[in-house]
Design a protein around this nucleic acid. Structure first.
Lengths: 126, 126, 126, 126
DNA sequence: GTGGTCTAGACCACA
DNA sequence: GTGGTCTAGACCACG
């Protein structure tokens, strides 16, 4: 989990940065289903962040069925993350559609978009 | 201007919805350079929104050089909106890059993205 | 008077642009003491500006003793513009002092200022 | 921050006076990069000004990259104020040029200008 | 506690 | 009539 970087200066809420970071870890396979997440206190200490903020991020991820918390035992990556992945995928595609729509209004050439995708896709190959 | 729809229940601030709506009107050519925008009071009345909120949106658009306001005379679409378009284009492409990046993490097939672009592009043809 | 150019898009009020323009004409000697200014209506027509705005500019210049209006006969450059020049000079020097002060705070080198003056001075030689 | 003085009777808007005052504090080094600014409410109370006005000033300074505001945490002087300083420097030099130009029109001797700069420069030595 | 947003209502200068 | 500024008071999300 030490791959997660928080930017306290950023405008996006810290708990959302946390959600995004942990979600990436899970969706990319860095964290396996069933694996234990660090405790709220430990992560709060490691990232120098208010425990309440960690708690809020965990609660949000649990709401999205990406993790499950067992009171007194800790939090764990869900065994089946496919439904959560589906919901997240929907959101990503919706964002893409919106961006494409705005690009269309802004008279950006379609080639520029596909080219951008190619470039970004190669650049982040695992 | 009656094409603009405001959702007061939305999480995105009203003034941002206004900015986006008016920006679309301008970038899409629905409003021509030099054309007068509705007065702050008139638009406030039409959309049932507080005049201060309209003014905040106009101020933001003026900061982006998309419109210019002349006290006592009204607000007008800028004669030359190209520099503003350039800045906006940058933002759109950055959004696209971020969305593609997240799609990559979520193991979405690249074909799905290009297909989505094709579909969205055709669907919004003027 | 046809040298005066008004920018209706500018943020500085039109009547102030008028004042500045006419003041320049007078202080630079383009208009001689005692000379008649164009009538309010004629100037309003020539510049395509509301006559009330011309009137306001003339009133302001009269308040500054740069011109004098004779009801029914028109407006004329004052015979003795020295007192008005003095007051205006004070204002210019105050502006300069303020700008220099801010430049000092911004750590701008003093040489840059004197150099700027030399350049501006030569560039606008009559 | 108690060095800032606001003149509610002045013609220049309060929020601009605030911007200028805080900007001076930052550019002069009285406030260090990363330092926390007083909270909107606290400063509003101290200066006997409406919090909204303080917020408008903070928003403007943030737009100029001189400070950064983090919802829930407060506002802070930017870590790197050099880009903002550059933009501000441009404005100052433009003001100087304009003042020199008007001085030229008003037949003010060039020596008077350089002398004024020398005097002002010495008078505000840190 | 913080900053951000919105509303309601007022006053001003400008045209 | 216009836009610009300010005030007072409210609500919200974040930490």
């Amino acid at each position: 989990m030490s791959n997660i970087r928080i930017d306290v200066k950023s405008r996006t809420p810290i708990f959302e940065q946390l959600c995004a970071g942990i979600r990436e870890e899970i969706l990319s396979g860095a964290m396996a289903p069933g694996e234990a997440l660090p405790s709220v206190r430990a992560l709060a200490c490691e990232l120098a962040i208010n425990p309440n903020t960690i708690q809020k991020a965990y609660a949000e991820l649990e709401r999205q069925k990406l993790i499950s918390s067992a009171p007194g035992r800790g939090s764990f990556v869900s065994d089946d993350i496919r439904p959560a992945m589906g919901a997240f995928e929907e959101k990503i595609l919706a964002d893409l559609r919106a961006a494409v729509h705005r690009a269309r209004l802004c008279s950006i050439a379609k080639e520029k978009l596909t080219e951008l995708i190619d470039k970004e896709w190669e650049g982040t190959k695992p």
